[in-house]
Design a protein around this nucleic acid. Structure first.
Lengths: 103, 103
DNA sequence: AGTGAATATACCTGTCAAGGCATATAACAA
DNA sequence: TTGTTATATGCCTTGACAGGTATATTCACT
């Protein structure tokens, strides 16, 4: 799994931005107003999100419309699937491990 | 979504530890050897993972067996589901947004 | 051309987190 | 007890990163 995606999402304000964009696309100042952030910080966060491939941009006049990109979420979903086995075999795994220790 | 989970996973070495624990539980020195990390750093990373609820510990003699915990992965899964709508309505959302801009 | 709005960037500063290393703690063994 | 193994913690240094503020850039409009 690409840790760049996760570190981009791990910052609280970026998380808020992503959850805002989940509903619909937004331009920069809309995000700044909605989330009570200053415009430069929003631009910087969007830059990080863009470099992580989490959003893409559509220029419209002086404005820039930011929108979520599906790919990283799908990749995260795939990665998470590899943990589904863990959810059932936890106790068995530990038992087996402890049993091996005794040998 | 809890950003603590994400920031714990966002650190590359912790990600490697988690992916190692996905297969089966491990004790500290096993992790250190497998991943070519020094023991103190492994302990520190495990501490972070533990505080984030991603792992739990089972003492066995002097050793401590670390194992993945299912809950945070399930929560991440739930959160990801809220983005499934995005994957289909991307183009429509943008069109609608641009249409509103013209008014 | 000149003005204003929307956005990006540069620079500074403070904070936090990761690695390295030494050392403390705890449990077992002889 | 003493030594040995497994693990945790403390301290230090360094690098990354987020916020604040000022400024640059880009486009539209008159």
């Amino acid at each position: 799994m690409d840790t760049m995606t996760l570190s981009a999402l791990a910052e609280p304000n970026r998380m808020r931005i992503v959850e805002l964009l989940r509903d619909r696309p937004h331009n920069v100042s809309e995000i700044a107003n909605q989330l009570w952030l200053r415009q430069p910080q929003v631009s910087k966060h969007l830059r990080v999100l863009h470099e992580a491939g989490l959003v893409d941009v559509h220029p419209a006049a002086q404005q820039r419309i930011y929108q979520l990109q599906a790919k990283p979420f799908e990749e995260l979903d795939c990665w998470l699937e590899t943990f589904k086995r863990v959810r059932e075999t936890r106790i068995d795994s530990l038992d087996n491990y402890l049993r091996e220790l005794k040998n």
